[in-house]
């Protein structure tokens, strides 16, 4: 519990870490990994056991996971337009 004040400070200013050339929030990353793993593997496992259906279900799960994550997680990027407006 001692570390709490520090962590709180962190969350206010610089809270993101870099993974694969872009910044992410650890909590969101964990959520995304869990969601995509469940939808993908879940799709694979519930599919009828005749190839290639499991793979197709798995892929659909992946797309589903991607869409869910894109909706519930906000990208960590800010925009600024510079120069003249057209």
């Amino acid at each position: 519990m001692k570390q709490k004040p520090m962590e709180e400070q962190d969350t206010q200013s610089e809270q993101y870490i870099e993974v694969w050339e872009d910044v992410v929030r650890i909590k969101d990353l964990v959520i995304s990994l869990i969601i995509c793993s469940i939808t993908t593997l879940g799709g694979y496992l519930i599919a009828p056991n005749e190839p290639p259906k499991p793979l197709i279900f798995g892929l659909v799960g992946t797309v589903l996971g991607f869409i869910i994550c894109s909706i519930i997680i906000k990208p960590k990027r800010t925009f600024e337009y510079i120069g003249e407006e057209e």
Binding site: V19, W20, D22, V23, V24, R25, D28, L29, I31, S32, L33, I35, C36, S37, T62, G65, F66, C69, S70, I73, K74, P75, K76
Partner: peptide
């Protein structure tokens, strides 16, 4: 497109 979602995929 959040980066997290790409990593998740």
């Amino acid at each position: 497109i959040p980066h997290e979602a790409l990593l998740g995929v």
